[in-house]
Design a protein around this nucleic acid. Structure first.
Lengths: 335, 335
DNA sequence: TTGAAAGCGTTACCAA
DNA sequence: TTGGTAACGCTTTCAA
């Protein structure tokens, strides 16, 4: 019969101390003489002792898990974001519980499951959690942070790219690049971030003196992603001079769609997309884009989580992350 | 003072039964009269009772967690694979513990952490776990399955795309498409799957009567990914007629690199890449590729996990997943 | 069918 | 500084 696994009891016995001392030695928590500490640690290593996280979590009412809610991680921007979050989560000594959702119902179930694992925090990168459910989390002292979500639930912290500033950069670039007629490309049923970018674009153009009622048209893609952009392009006879696009996938599809018609940027139109995905930098696209600082977004998300864990009742906070214009090939140099 | 959370005890009291009965009602495990079952379930719903997974796992010595080891999920193929795995894991009622590793050391630590959470299984999509460590898992009855790894550790199951068959398809396509001189493009320090594809390509050409000693050259990219492919292209004066490439990212980079020199497929050379990533299908590339069936790979991975959980001592198995040639624009029609 | 009780492996409080 | 002990919340014998 094989011993299933080494427990604190085993270590205690072998080191000639009590379980309690073992716990203290390993957790640096509670007073213990340096000598015994050394000895226990040595024995623990000898025996290959590993704390049982389930037991630890049960006792502490909190696991070292952080729940992450994502969707469609095939999308390059989303996988970049997940990448950044995983790195940050691991850097802080947590493990990521990742769930991909396909509906709001799945989001609810997931949030429950996270709670059942007594996670140390939840990061929502997709969907809109119902306020009631989030309140349950808050009541259980589980910090929740939303990324690029509309900051509207009390007790939840948010990290968002500064969409408005990004849209303004795009507007300025296009105007100074000589455009007179503008287009805003987004897909139907867009996210909050997408809609926000569109509204801010209009506003920024207004302030730059553009008569947006006349000279700004909305191009609506029938679906999201590359294919949506391509379809939007095929529905157009002659593109506006300066086009701002809600995200990179849409922009790449649109550009390819126009090329199929023999039109290209920057000669026939200028194009700026949001999200600086790797693909937009490639030779075939060299798209001017707005870069979302994924590393900074991830860093702030964890920071909010940790701070709220320390003080659960503090007021909600929203961090806006600076967005940069990456000037490439699909927009003209400003004069 | 707020009640932290509803426990089985609470439900038991309210339903006028014992904790044990509550457990039976919820787990469908152990005999219980339909009437009390109904009643308990009703009360549980009323009170919003949720099983504490930490306590459950501690008692059962197994959590409903499955550990997944990944790396560089920015790569479109890898994020597709992760996507498939997450779907399959959730479909079976598990939660995914995802860790991104950057070194073999991190792999070891991760494997330990997974064990500490008493995961129901581990899926390795990157790195090469040391046999000793895997044996610890095996001893703890934790099933391990490797995806596209060299199947060489006893007690571990594997799921691999049929690289050899894929390479043979590519060879045949290129030969029948009229190529006489061939190239194999891979990056330095390639994975086992990559090397295997290269060897199989040579073998297949041999069998098709090509004098590979003379007419097959190896193009070595100095790094992986798109940039590596581009660099490989820039080191070439005149490309071989038919090029097979270890993966899609490399292939896209190579194609763009050649285009930069004014050469394009299929007129100046033919190109077939492994991994049918979304990008390869796009208008700018329309690359002929070998499709890895991610859904099937994921399905089999979970199947192996579940079967080995049932019978931990069964001999290791390796499933080879069929690969399909997607004929697109970078190879000529066969005559 | 039901309930009592003994774990599962930790941690934290309280005496010593 | 240490050890005993009572949780943590659940599952699973074993009797009744």
């Amino acid at each position: 019969m094989i011993k299933q696994s080494v427990t604190a009891e085993d270590v205690a016995r072998r080191a000639g101390v009590s379980r309690a001392v073992v716990s203290r030695a390993l957790s640096n928590n509670g007073s213990i003489s340096p000598a015994t500490r050394e000895r226990v640690l040595l024995v623990a290593k000898e025996l290959g002792y590993q704390v049982n996280f389930l037991a630890q979590g049960l006792n502490r009412r909190r696991s070292h898990l952080i729940g992450v809610i994502v969707s469609r991680i095939n999308d390059p921007f989303r996988s970049s974001l997940l990448d950044g979050l995983l790195g940050e989560i691991q850097r802080h000594g947590f493990q990521a519980l990742v769930t991909e959702i396909r509906s709001e119902q799945e989001l609810e179930d997931t949030l429950r499951h996270f709670a059942q694992f007594r996670v140390s925090g939840v990061i929502v990168t997709s969907g809109k959690p119902p306020e009631a459910l989030v309140n349950e989390c808050v009541q259980q002292q589980i910090p929740v942070v939303g990324i690029n979500r509309q900051p509207d639930i009390p007790g939840v912290d948010y990290v968002c790219s500064d969409n408005a500033a990004g849209a303004a950069l795009a507007a300025e670039q296009l105007v100074r690049g000589g455009c007179r007629r503008f287009g805003w490309l987004n897909n139907d049923n867009s996210t909050w971030a997408g809609r926000m970018r569109g509204e801010a674009f209009r506003l920024a153009l207004d302030e730059l003196g553009v008569d947006t009622a006349r000279n700004l048209v909305t191009l609506l893609a029938p679906q999201e992603g590359y294919d949506g952009g391509m379809q939007a392009a095929s529905a157009i006879k002659s593109p506006p001079e300066g086009i701002f696009c809600a995200n990179a996938q849409l922009a790449c599809g649109f550009l390819d769609g126009m090329r199929q018609q023999g039109k290209d940027a920057p000669q026939d139109f200028q194009l700026i997309g949001f999200d600086n995905t790797p693909q937009t930098a490639q030779y075939g696209y060299r798209l001017t884009t707005l870069n979302q600082n994924v590393a900074e977004i991830s860093r702030l998300a964890l920071m909010h989580l940790l701070e709220r864990a320390r003080d659960p009742l503090q007021p909600s906070r929203t961090s806006w992350v600076k967005v940069d214009l990456i000037h490439r090939h699909t927009s003209l140099p400003t004069t």
